[in-house]
């Protein structure tokens, strides 16, 4: 079975978010980057577990420049067998999706794993785009994936609940919390990852359809109003009459 895991690079969760003075670009000075948590903790770990249970091969694919090699090595140390890096700035979701779909159509896969969303652009866009390009089913926000005979049993999060579904390969799946537990690679795995193949390929061209004009920081809160803990009537009155939220 061939399992492809799409991994993205995002600023670390405590990174201070700022932009260049003209608001045109993200200011990456001093920002540490990590593998997007949903891709790492849930999608990649579940793919690796899946291979351990059912056999097969796990490939990670990443669209990015050589500065991403460190997170790709991490993915290999977590248990992926090989990696592909499409050597380009991931300029838009459409661009990234095209690269992944291109690779997957030349190297057919049984399951393509995505994280639920990236923690920077929060789009949930790549999975639906790739699966549409390949015309295969897509199971979003899955918290469970198991083999069930020749088919696969998944659970997906829906508003206020979960839905269990059956699907046949090939398909795409986006991983949410519950899918797996974070894995910390040991020293041996880290050493071994250095010997695993990392193939670098050049991108296919894509014409952009949207562009970001401007970034801004949200207006902060104007300051907290402290309420006497003995006087909850005052708080209720403010929420009711001033804020009109109760």
């Amino acid at each position: 079975m061939k399992l492809l895991v799409c991994i993205s690079r995002t600023p670390e969760t405590t990174a201070k978010i700022s932009f260049t003075e003209d608001g045109k670009q993200f200011n990456s000075d001093g920002v540490q980057y990590i593998m997007n948590p949903y891709d790492e903790w849930y999608a990649l770990v579940r793919a690796v577990e899946f291979k351990e249970q059912n056999g097969g091969e796990v490939t990670v694919i990443h669209v990015g420049e050589s500065s991403s090699d460190i997170i790709i090595r991490k993915a290999l140390s977590i248990g992926a067998d090989k990696a592909v890096r499409v050597n380009a700035n991931p300029s838009s979701s459409l661009f990234v999706a095209k690269q992944i779909a291109n690779y997957a159509s030349e190297n057919p896969q049984d399951i393509i794993f995505f994280g639920k969303e990236t923690i920077d652009y929060n789009g949930s866009e790549i999975g639906p785009m790739v699966t549409e390009m390949l015309d295969i089913p897509y199971i979003s926000f899955a918290s469970k994936l198991d083999k069930d005979g020749d088919a696969f049993l998944c659970e997906r999060d829906i508003e206020g609940g979960v839905q269990a579904l059956k699907v046949n390969a090939p398909f795409g799946i986006s991983a949410a919390k519950g899918m797996a537990e974070q894995r910390i690679p040991n020293m041996k795995a880290i050493m071994m990852s250095k010997r695993k193949p990392l193939e670098v390929v050049e991108p296919v061209e894509v014409e952009a359809k949207v562009s970001i004009d401007q970034y801004e920081l949200p207006a902060g809160k104007s300051g907290v109003k402290l309420i006497d803990p003995e006087n909850m009537d005052e708080l209720v009155q403010l929420l009711k009459d001033v804020e009109k939220v109760l």
Partner: peptide, 22 residues
């Protein structure tokens, strides 16, 4: 939503459209 997010990217590809989510 869970449905809309799964559909948005697919429709954008199908219709050769630009996409902005959320």
């Amino acid at each position: 939503s869970s449905q809309g997010k799964s559909l948005a990217g697919r429709l954008a590809i199908r219709l050769d459209a630009g996409l902005v989510t959320a």
